[in-house]
């Protein structure tokens, strides 16, 4: 019981200290805000639906981009993992494209697609394709070779082999890849919103800052952290529930 609460000591102390500091100095600032004001701003923005609307926009863009990135990454990853020849042939192209930082594509997407969901979704898709592709490829080449032999002995066609043997065997590690990619998708979506796209949580934060509402800005910052934490915790829970130790191999992206 006491153990559990130790984790709360540091953040609570910091909040109390910040509150006391603001109270003692009678803070009037355009860049900092009292914790109690931040809480009030958060409740207000939650009640008038502003936070929920921006959250929905960010999550929608992240999910749509992830959907595209996951589809491409998974199918190419399966292909490269199953056939060594494709893997060898694509090596140069993959290594040439992968290191491009996704945010460097913001101006390109801006030019080609303009502002809106389109550019954000395409950048999220680009960013999430790589971890899924690389980890799926690794998951599939790590499959027990005897399983492939079984598939051959059963005279499975290519489709049956993928559907009945390869994907189930690689599923736990593909789920880990998906979990990492969801994190990437959220981060990239917020980053695109902060740096250009007038949508979602990132843009709400930027406009709170520009209109000198530090209380709302910090409220949105904490909320963004909360959303990221909740998504991550939920996925970890799912992973433990469905895959258990099979997915315990942590992979760094």
């Amino acid at each position: 019981m006491t153990r559990k609460w130790r984790g709360a000591v540091v953040p609570v102390t910091l909040l109390v200290l910040a509150e006391i500091y603001c109270f003692a100095t009678n803070l009037e600032s355009d860049s900092l805000a009292r914790p109690s004001d931040i809480a009030v701003a958060a409740v207000q923005a939650l009640l008038d639906g502003e936070i929920l609307r921006s959250t929905a926009q960010t999550l929608w863009a992240a999910a749509a981009g992830l959907g595209i990135g996951f589809t491409i990454g998974l199918s190419v990853g399966v292909l490269l993992g199953l056939f060594a020849i494709f893997n060898d042939l694509m090596e140069f192209s993959i290594e040439a494209f992968r290191p491009i930082p996704s945010v460097a594509l913001i101006p390109v997407a801006m030019l080609l697609l303009g502002f809106g969901y389109g550019m954000e979704i395409s950048i999220v898709a680009f960013a999430t394709t790589w971890p899924i592709l690389i980890l799926t490829r690794a998951a599939i080449s790590g499959i027990e070779p005897r399983l492939i032999e079984v598939a051959r002995a059963l005279r499975f066609g290519l489709f049956a082999r993928i559907w009945k043997i390869v994907l189930p065997a690689a599923l736990p590690r593909i789920f880990v890849a998906l979990r990492l990619a969801i994190g990437v998708a959220l981060v990239v979506a917020v980053t695109v919103e902060i740096s250009s796209n007038p949508l979602g949580l990132g843009y709400a934060m930027m406009s709170a800052q520009q209109s000198l509402h530090p209380d709302l800005m910090f409220a949105l910052l904490f909320w963004t952290g909360l959303v990221g934490w909740a998504v991550n915790a939920g996925l970890l829970q799912l992973q433990r529930r469905f895959f258990g130790p099979a997915a315990a191999v942590e992979v760094l992206p």
Binding site: P11, V187, N232
Partner: peptide, 26 residues
Amino acid sequence: REYLTPTLDWIRPMPASAIVPVAISL
């Protein structure tokens, strides 16, 4: 570790770029 890990775990999934507005205003 016992005191700080929960706080660090909360910050971990936070998009690093979310700090940008705060940095600009400061």
